[in-house]
């Protein structure tokens, strides 16, 4: 059975004498390398390398960075601890402990909300699953560094006040 548009048998062309003579092809390869070298030497602006961390790449507005928890207009967290995000999370990195909210119109809220940033695969399914728009990954933060593994587990306070600083 053949796939549409593809030949049943792939035939490779035999190398001709010049190609199999080794040195001509080496020279051709070096010429390509040399061309790039010289072009970049005299035209550094066009070079694709970014001088990180002095220079940073621009990402689109939909880039998924470090998570944050959003707030209602009155400043209280939107999260109602429905566990949709932790259920859908393929990395199982979200841990929520629900509690009874003193306000009966809210009823349920997250007493604890922890994300293990080392486990997170930044797939964005959590913000997709959230029925309350409580979790977002729109901070644009991708520089995440810490000295201990424990420090990568960020809690609710941290996520509610997630600023643009990369340190944990």
């Amino acid at each position: 059975m053949s796939y549409k548009g593809l030949p049943d048998v792939v035939t490779t062309r035999r190398r001709n004498l010049l190609e199999s003579a080794y040195f001509t092809e080496i020279a051709r390869g070096l010429a390509v390398t040399g061309r790039h070298l010289i072009r970049n030497l005299f035209n550094t602006d066009k070079m694709p390398t970014v001088q990180y961390p002095d220079q940073k790449r621009d990402y689109g507005p939909r880039f998924r960075g470090r998570h944050r928890l959003t707030q209602r207009e009155d400043g209280s967290p939107r999260c109602v601890a429905c566990m949709m995000c932790s259920t859908v999370c393929p990395a199982d990195c979200i841990e929520i402990i629900a509690g009874e909210h003193p306000d009966p119109t809210i009823e349920k809220y997250s007493k604890e909300f922890n994300i293990d940033l080392l486990r997170c695969v930044y797939c964005g399914l959590c913000e997709e699953a959230c029925p309350c728009d409580a979790i977002r990954m729109d901070t644009g933060i991708y520089e995440i560094a810490a000295e201990t593994r424990e420090a990568f587990v960020v809690n609710k306070d941290f996520l509610l006040n997630n600023d643009k600083d990369g340190t944990l």
Binding site: V80, A81, C82, M84, E107, K108, P131, C132
Partner: peptide, 9 residues
Amino acid sequence: VDCPICDQA
């Protein structure tokens, strides 16, 4: 339709 906070969900 408060399924997110309903234990029966």
